[in-house]
């Protein structure tokens, strides 16, 4: 009898993945972490400066703005995107006319490159030439600064992000719903459960894993938003619509402050990891309860 699960065989099989993981995940993080402790600026040498880059971030109003914008987009996305995509998946499960075409239509934005999504929405949201202001103008509403103004830009980015992601999330929910055992649903019907009760006490609890996965993907995607900001506003006016990643790009590549940029990258990594782990922990607690 040959035991595949002997320790050295397991180690051998894990080794290639371990090498790849180390090379493409662990090493870049360690490298970025190391650089974040230097004053690297590209063309000159990098001197060790300890935590100065991190301390400077605390005092950087643009960085604080990028954190608050990212968190705002995160909250809006989790609040609206998860229920909306779940609701759409439930709708798709019903016998809807042209359901396939509708699914394809909803999934469409997910396969469009974010840079193009941004470009399309510029023509909708631009305060001067955008479609939206042209539509509301006949109603006597003055032009609104959907993007490029003081306050609405992060909300607009969240709306575009939700629009671009809803089809993808819906598809995952739809696949999850297809896997639910029919017997359980039938049994609940026989027990006299209403549609709402079925949804609340049967469907949602059984979909908890899928909801967790979608939420996790959503959280990580929000922390990666770059192209939408780049196309919609370029991070402006004066960095007021930056997200963490777009500001990191600006600091690293436009300002050529590589050390500071890597410090932001580490902060993004830590915030993303903590948020994801916290969410997973909460989900697990909910499952065990």
């Amino acid at each position: 009898m040959v035991w595949v699960s002997s320790p050295w065989k397991i180690a051998l099989m894990v080794f290639p993945a371990f090498i790849l993981f180390t090379a493409f995940f662990v090493y870049p993080i360690v490298y970025a972490g190391g650089y974040s402790l230097t004053d690297a600026a590209g063309f000159s040498g990098a001197d060790f400066i300890g935590l100065d880059n991190y301390l400077a971030l605390v005092d950087d109003p643009f960085f604080r703005r990028s954190v608050s914008n990212t968190l705002l987009i995160l909250v809006l996305s989790v609040t609206f995107l998860v229920p909306a995509s779940f609701g759409l998946a439930l709708l798709m499960q019903q016998r809807v006319r042209a359901a396939g075409a509708l699914r394809a239509l909803l999934f469409g934005p997910a396969i469009v490159a974010p840079i193009l999504v941004g470009l399309v929405w510029v023509f909708i949201l631009d305060p001067r030439v955008g479609l939206l202001n042209h539509l509301v103008e006949p109603l006597g509403i003055p032009p609104v600064q959907w993007i490029g103004g003081d306050s609405l830009t992060p909300y607009s980015i969240a709306v575009v992000f939700i629009w671009a992601s809803v089809g993808f999330a819906m598809t995952i929910f739809y696949a999850g719903l297809q896997l639910l055992p029919r017997e359980v649903m039938e049994a609940s019907s026989l027990d006299g459960a209403s549609r709402w009760q079925q949804l609340r006490f049967v469907t949602v609890p059984m979909m908890r894993e899928t909801i967790g996965i979608v939420s996790l993907l959503l959280i990580t995607n929000v922390f990666k938003i770059f192209e939408l900001v780049y196309m919609l506003t370029g991070g402006g006016p004066v960095h007021s619509s930056e997200t963490l990643v777009s500001y990191m790009y600006f600091v690293t590549f436009t300002d050529q402050r590589y050390g500071s940029g890597m410090a932001i990258a580490m902060v993004v990594f830590v915030i993303g990891a903590i948020t994801s782990l916290a969410y997973l922990a909460l989900s697990r607690r909910g499952r065990l309860a």
């Binding site: 631009d126 001067r128 032009p143 600064q145 993007i147 490029g148 402006g236």
Partner: peptide
């Protein structure tokens, strides 16, 4: 221009 922020 009112869209000085968003135009390139």
């Amino acid at each position: 221009s009112s869209n000085v922020s968003t135009q390139t």
